[in-house]
Design a protein around this nucleic acid. Structure first.
Lengths: 258, 258
DNA sequence: CCAATAGTGTCTATGAGACATTATCTA
DNA sequence: TAGATAATGTCTCATAGACACTATTGG
């Protein structure tokens, strides 16, 4: 096979190669202020950041020490950036099998002072209760949740201000244009719980008005009523429970919604 | 500044680094079979591929020689993958300032026999007439357009079958969920021309039925009627011309279309 | 006048949006 | 019973979708 001959003659050093390949993860969670019983929750979208340690795990001064940054790390040669992100997310937060998706590549020359380092940005959705036992690792002295309203005011490492801003834009769109809202909710939820999730990213009246939204949820093809099943966790009057169903969502700008 | 101290001590060889960083470009064009005068065009979506040369530019046997592949090449340290794609697109086809967008990263271990090589996939939209003077370069012995219906039957290099399949999925969605259809059309177009573009990716009746679509185009917020301007290039009866306007398109699955 | 495409008339059904009203439960 | 949330009733208006019909023009 002539490919083998070509490979023997191929010089892998022919082109200059990157100095590093990393994954970063924007971990989103929604904090519910469920202050009272029998009340629908008020929700606010948060992002998890780490504060970079002053010294690395070998005791030397750390790059961008003391600044807030997205969790992440270097990708190895035997994994994809996505697998690396999943692994790091588990190391960082202890959570596994959660919604994780790639959304961008950051490779502008000079973005990292250490050299030519390419970062793959991912976003993850973690229900708040799963973040309970999050922990700091070697690179991170602190782990904290910040409201997406405030996070860009922080002193952020590298080009993470840009990566975070993009993540927020992406999740705002995804929440409204796909069914990822599902990932923030329990398997069975009331209309007011879904509404609270969506209200973290929009103030649109069609979603904000209770009567309109309670009626609309019954017509959405990707949401199914669980007939006969109700809960009183959001009100004294038992509220109908719904679940997401896996149907393809058509969001064509030229079609009518079916 | 302590970052400088940290940098001096930073060992750039601490992690194993990729053997290469490349950009690939899925160039889409629509071929119009405008066989007769006074007829709306029939359109078919095509993708441009190159046939990899048997030998490289130094006369040595080429990797994946003779197979069809996406155009692309290695990214340099002083450019982004996007800039590299734009540059290569210009070298390959001579076209400049066209719609180009990143849509995926391909970094599965073993995807390229030459080593750990990461590819950034982009799609580009080039109006057919601009592809007139496309040319083969060192790596490519032939350049050809293939219908998206047939392209996956070819013997494709590397993991390009996957990259191309993803590109086709992406452009199908983008054509219906964004206003990129604009990039395939002249600045001023008739309803039947836009309809023909959309029919390359959907058979939906709301788009396929003339009367419905002719009426709908007037209500779309991102399309504007050019009052008083008509053309007879698609029929004997003069047809109204339209243009795209830059407005934000809301494609929320929970909202009504406004 | 024919053929072909562009575009309108008309009807029905559905659903958005607004606002009022009813239902259900606990403290 | 008060108060809160859930859910429905009712009205108006807009538009999707279907199908028939009219308009315009070159050959």
């Amino acid at each position: 096979m002539s490919n083998e001959q070509a490979l023997r003659q191929y010089d892998v050093k022919k082109y200059r190669t990157p100095d590093g390949y990393t994954s970063d993860i924007a971990v989103f969670t929604i904090r519910s202020t469920r202050n009272e019983m029998f009340k629908p929750p008020t929700m606010e979208l948060h992002i998890m950041l780490i504060k970079r340690s002053m010294v690395d795990n070998e005791g030397r001064p750390n790059i961008e020490a003391g600044k807030w940054a997205l969790p992440g790390g270097f990708v190895g040669p035997d994994e994809t950036a996505y697998q690396s992100a999943a692994r790091e997310l588990k190391e960082e937060t202890g959570v596994d099998h959660i919604h994780l998706q790639h959304y961008g590549v950051y490779d502008a020359p000079g973005r990292d002072p250490r050299g030519w380092i390419i970062s793959n940005a991912h976003y993850a959705i973690v229900p708040e209760h799963q973040l309970a036992h999050r922990q700091a690792n070697d690179d991170a002295s602190e782990v904290e949740l910040f409201s997406v309203e405030d996070v860009l005011q922080l002193d952020l490492a590298f080009d993470h201000a840009e990566i975070i801003a993009d993540a927020i834009t992406v999740i705002r769109h995804k929440l409204l244009e796909t069914t990822v809202a599902k990932e923030f909710l329990p398997a069975e939820f009331t209309y007011s719980e879904l509404q609270a999730v969506l209200l973290t990213v929009t103030k649109d009246s069609a979603i904000a008005l209770d009567a309109a939204f309670a009626r609309k949820i019954k017509t959405l093809p990707f949401i199914q009523e669980i007939t006969g099943k109700k809960t009183t966790r959001t009100s004294k009057k038992p509220a109908q429970l719904y679940r997401f169903v896996d149907v393809e969502v058509n969001s064509s700008i030229y079609h009518a919604r079916k």
